[in-house]
Design a protein around this nucleic acid. Structure first.
Length: 426
RNA sequence: GUGGGCGUGGCCUAGUGGUUUAAGGCGCCAGGUUGUGGCCCUGGAGAUCGAGGGUUCAAAUCCCUCCGUCCACCCCA
């Protein structure tokens, strides 16, 4: 019999992992609530064309990473490889341009990209993302960045760095790209193999090369911020002023470029302290042409995506304290068939009071059941045997200090609720 | 897609050609008498040593292929 495994690049989120995810999710939802962002859920798959148009034909995502297939009706669909295009599609489809602008949205969703898995990178990963659509002012850029920064900080991660850059818009970027190519043209023979390809296909990426030999060229390459048109320059200047005003520590980097075609002007990332490839925890930027590209009216927008897997990785690395999701249970320990029946009734009543109750496995000795209670980290055990059944009582054992008290069946719930309440208060 | 490391019970590891009918630890199950846990003790279940092929009298151990996994690159969250 062949054994099945989770598909390559996917993982099972086991119970002991869950607390990290709930922790990050709750932080994200909380920040969004405070900033007035509303949740949007879009389908897990979309028409392939949405991504080809939105993300860009030349991007790696479209070229080689899409989970695309023809469905039984002959439609070409793709498992969502990113969150912004679907959000913009929904914005258009549901006439959100007639809502008060900007429309502030957030989402949690799985993202699919066919890539070779490695540390912090999966074929299915999960993103928390935010989009503010319908406002082109840099104040919104600052808001979205502030939201992302607050989220990352709230998780308790230390030593994060925020990097921002402006890559211009359709008015000024061509001029910059040309300057870049002219600059690099002279050094082509000295560049690494990858960079020679980038020179032709995507010059901006030249700035992102990690090869030792290419570093000197990057350092003295022309900077996008020096080639901005007046409008972009003003946008950039104001954004930085707002970030200063908000006391959000940032560094600017002309090396920060992002891989999706739709980005204009502002791009930003939040990175953890440690070096290494897959380190970006949160990344985004402005996409003023995207909605129009998808067939809508000219509509500015800005947003970011943040990968849960990487956040969790860093939470663990930095040993951030994360609360347990499941409270320590009350375990019903029973001896004999009558006691089991009696115990089941008690369990039901305790659960009505919202306590977490586990009935110890049947057909085991009392001793084994007590061991079981310990092994599941029970806070209290309610022991019921012949005596308790006869007297309609339960013996409540405090598993931490081995003290034990008997209480009438009718009072058990209230008794334990008081105990547990005390516990949680302390 | 390219390059490298690694694949021994659920988990971690020992064993690098014949004392191996593969060992230990954790975990799991049972027991340590009569109704009670955490420590300790005893016992048990659980591995065709990733798969296939080859070399050899003999392979977990050497070689090849494939698969998986991890890491790095490309790229990205």
């Amino acid at each position: 019999m062949q054994m099945f495994k989770a598909p390559r690049g996917t993982v099972d989120l086991l119970p002991q992992e869950q607390r990290y995810w709930r922790y990050a999710e709750q932080a994200a939802a909380g920040v969004c609530r405070r900033f007035g962002y509303q949740r949007l859920d879009t389908p897990t798959f979309e028409a392939s064309g949405l991504f080809v148009r939105g993300v860009g034909e030349q991007t790696d995502i479209v070229q080689k990473e899409m989970y695309a297939f023809e469905d039984r009706g002959g439609d070409l669909v793709t498992l969502r490889p990113e969150g912004t295009a679907p959000a913009c599609r929904a914005y258009l489809e549901h006439g959100m341009s007639s809502l008060p602008q900007p429309v502030r949205l957030y989402y949690f969703c799985p993202i699919f990209r066919y890539e070779r898995p490695q540390a912090g990178r999966y074929r299915e990963h999960h993103q928390f993302g935010v989009e503010a659509i319908g406002d082109g002012d840099p104040a919104i850029d600052a808001e979205v960045i502030q939201l992302g920064w607050s989220y990352a900080r709230e998780l308790g991660l230390g030593k994060l760095s925020l990097v921002v850059n402006s890559i211009g818009d359709p008015a000024c970027r061509p001029g910059y790209l040309q300057a870049l190519k002219e600059y690099y043209g002279a050094y082509l023979p000295h560049l690494c193999q990858d960079c020679r390809g980038r020179y032709e296909r995507n010059p901006l990426r030249l700035l992102d090369c990690k090869q030792e030999r290419c570093q000197p060229f990057i350092a003295s390459a022309p900077r996008s911020s020096d080639y901005l048109c007046d409008a972009c320059k003003e946008h950039w200047r104001r954004l930085l002023a707002y970030l200063d005003l908000l006391s959000i520590p940032y560094t600017t980097s002309h090396r920060l470029v992002r891989g999706l075609d739709y980005y204009t002007r502002t791009v930003f990332e939040i990175q953890p302290p440690d070096e290494g490839g897959q380190s970006t925890l949160l990344g985004g930027g402005r996409y003023d042409g995207l909605v129009q590209e998808l067939g809508g009216p000219p509509t500015p927008g800005i947003g970011f995506g943040s990968g849960f897997e990487r956040m969790v990785l860093n939470l663990k690395r930095q040993e951030v304290r994360v609360p347990e999701v499941l409270p320590r249970p009350v375990v019903i320990v029973h001896s004999g068939p009558q006691a089991l029946e009696y115990g089941l009734g008690i369990a039901a009543r305790l659960r009505k009071e919202s306590l977490t109750v586990i009935v110890a496995p049947a057909q085991r000795s009392l001793r084994a059941q007590m061991r079981y209670a310990s092994s599941v980290n029970a806070r209290y055990a309610v022991v019921v045997g012949e005596t308790e059944v006869r007297q309609r009582t339960g013996s409540v054992r405090d598993m931490d200090n081995a003290s034990q008290e008997e209480a009438p069946e009718a009072d058990l719930a209230a008794y334990l609720v008081a105990k547990v309440g005390l516990e949680q208060a302390g």
